[in-house]
Amino acid sequence: MKDSDVLERISRGDERALDDLYRKYYKMMTGIIIKNNGTEEEAKDIYQDALIVFWQKVISNQLVLTSKISTYLYSVCLNLWRKELDRKSRETNDDQDFDFAYFDEDTKEREAIIRECINQLGDTCKKILMYYYFDDMSMQDIAEKLGFSSVDTAKTKKYKCKKRLDSLVRAKYSASDFLD
C-alpha cells in the first residue's frame, strides 16, 4: 500500500483506504500515546482523531504532503495528545465549581437538538450534507459517490436536505424557546 495510492483513494472518498491506514499504523501510533502515559483507549481515540484530521485534509485538498503519511500522522497524534494532556492538566488544576459556573447548558442542549435532527434525516440526506460540509467534496464527486444522475441533481438534493435540516432544527429550537 503506497502512500500515493492511499492519497488517491482518499481523494475520491474511498473510506476503505482509511480502514487500511488504520490497520497499518495502529500499533505504531497507539504505541506512541501509550508510551506517553496514555491508556489504550485514549491512544485509540487520539489515533482515530488524527486519521480523521488526515482524511478531511486530503479529501478537501487542503493537504500538500511533503513527508510520509506515517510521519504526518505521528505529528498529528502527538499534537492531539499534547492538547489532551493540557486539557487534563487544566481540569485537575481548576476549581471544579468554577467549571460548573461556566457550564453552558444551553449550548449542550442546542447541540443535542441538532444531532437529533440530523439523525431524523434520511441516509442520503445525511451523507450529502456530511460529504459537502465536512469532507468538502465537490458536487461532482458527491454525485458520483452517491450515484446521482447529474451534478444538478446533487445540488438540488443538497439544497433540499439542508433546508429540511434547518426547518427541523428551527422547529425544535422554537419548542425549546431558543428562538425567542
Binding site: 473510506e15 497499518k24 495502529y26 505504531m28 485509540k44 486519521l51 450534507l129 456530511m130 465536512f134
Partner: peptide, 30 residues
C-alpha cells in the same frame, strides 16, 4: 449546524474504524 454536521461525520467515521478488529493487527504492520 455546520459544527454538528462535522461532528456527525466524525462520529460516523469513528464508528466505522471501531468496527475494525485491532487485536490481530499492528503486530506485524510495518
Amino acid at each position: 449546524i455546520y459544527k454538528a454536521l462535522g461532528e456527525a461525520r466524525k462520529n460516523a467515521l469513528k464508528s466505522r474504524l471501531n468496527q475494525i478488529p485491532v487485536n490481530e493487527i499492528g503486530w506485524y504492520n510495518g
